[in-house]
Nucleic acid binder design. Structure first.
Lengths: 232, 232
DNA sequence: CAGCGGCGTAATCGAACTGTAACGTATCTC
DNA sequence: GAGATACGTTACAGTTCGATTACGCCGCTG
């Protein structure tokens, strides 16, 4: 579960945001003063920080600078909240290291939506991955090939999903193990070979060869070119 | 250099944004209609897409859906541009897969700042090395020469990658061994000669001579001058 | 508890890659 | 121009790498 820290002096707004964050299932921590803000962040290790710029006791920009300077916090996304709408204010905020900037008054749902973008990572998750005849449905955990469903095991599915999510990109066995088996894996890298084989047996027999490309000395990649009728 | 695609029907705004993007050093491509927008993106492979939602001939939301459904484009950040400021419009845009949402009228400098946020924290090394007809794709572990793929072994690839990463610079065999074979190598320096030869055989036969320059008494260097129409 | 399906390991085989030695050729030195 | 040095080229033997098969180990289900 993602944890969010909120620094906002206005009590009403503080409560409103807190209520909505918790309703969305985020862990919450917050402060209505800027004084202990940095300590709070260090202690809580949030996944995202919402920061009001205009605080009675300190400047939100300074707090942001402090966050960026702190090695453990520097990578945490910061969303600025402010009433200042002037051009220079916005630019300064964004260039200072904020990841987003929302001008008051704003819609709470928009704030939530923007928060979720940051957790989506670089790429928004597509629900259905397509490559020619091959379709992978993330929500249903199903794979179809030309209308025909293909039965995959959980590990096979995750492996295919990961490969299809970045078609063409070559991944080492190491990377695949991290992504599919998890960081705390206790698995030989040869295991990847076996699963690649199993995927190939289930998919290539129907769809033709080379769906998964072996790159000798490097690893494997999903070959979007190989799919018949693929929208390359 | 990052490439940005802009889809915007308003001529004045189109020109304004284009001017500012190019001034900032971004590569630019764009269209003032929504019709060929997806084609354009597929062709240009941009690093970021700026998309007007209200287009005379098509809906920006549909284009965004198309982008997200396309395996090669689905990870590209999309920034929406729109005059609609209502809450639902914003939410729909953001939840549909947009990474950011800017309401007109806006400050150009803010747009630029928001674009830069998306590129922040990415690996400084370019993913594709180009020299004229020759293209080396680091993520795909592939080398193309005038559209034609060239099959290289892992060692050949790493050697070429290293040479191309610093075109014109002369490296001693010693340095090449350290960089490509690793510090704990147990390899004769003459081995480098053999790999240089193999690269030349695979590349120069198609592309003309002198891609890799021998510098007697010193070592080898990638010759960016030799490539016709080199960008280096 | 026996059967089943999924999971991961180990062993085998063949193809592809790797590095070295040896020889040929160009270039420099005196 | 002879000798020395550095580089180009070839051929080969050893090794590595990936595909594949077979097997034992769970955890579930009937």
């Amino acid at each position: 579960m993602k944890k969010i820290v909120l620094i906002e002096d206005d009590s009403d707004l503080f409560a409103l945001i807190r209520y909505n964050l918790e309703k969305e299932g985020f862990a919450f921590a917050g402060s209505q003063t800027g004084k202990g803000a940095l300590e709070l962040c260090r202690r809580e290790r949030p996944d995202l920080i919402i920061l009001d710029i205009m605080l009675p006791d300190s400047d939100g920009l300074d707090i942001c600078k402090g966050i960026r300077a702190h090695p453990e916090l520097s990578h945490v996304p910061v969303i600025f909240l402010t009433a200042r709408a002037s051009e220079t204010d916005r630019i300064v905020g964004l260039e200072l290291g904020a990841n987003d900037y929302i001008v008051k008054p704003f819609f709470v749902r928009e704030l939530i939506a923007r928060i979720k973008i940051h957790f989506r990572g670089q790429a928004p998750t597509t629900k259905i991955l397509k490559a020619g005849e091959l379709e992978l449905d993330r929500t249903r955990c199903q794979v179809h090939l030309g209308g025909q469903e293909i039965a995959l095991t959980a590990t096979e599915f995750r492996l295919l999903e990961f490969l299809m999510s970045r078609p063409g990109v070559v991944f080492s066995r190491e990377q695949l193990l991290d992504a599919v088996w998890g960081h705390d894996r206790a698995v030989t890298d040869r295991t990847v070979d076996v699963y690649i084989l199993r995927l190939r047996q289930k998919i290539e027999t129907v769809a033709g060869p080379d769906f998964i490309r072996s790159v000798r000395g490097f690893g494997y990649s999903f070959n979007s070119e190989a799919a018949p009728g693929v929208v390359a």
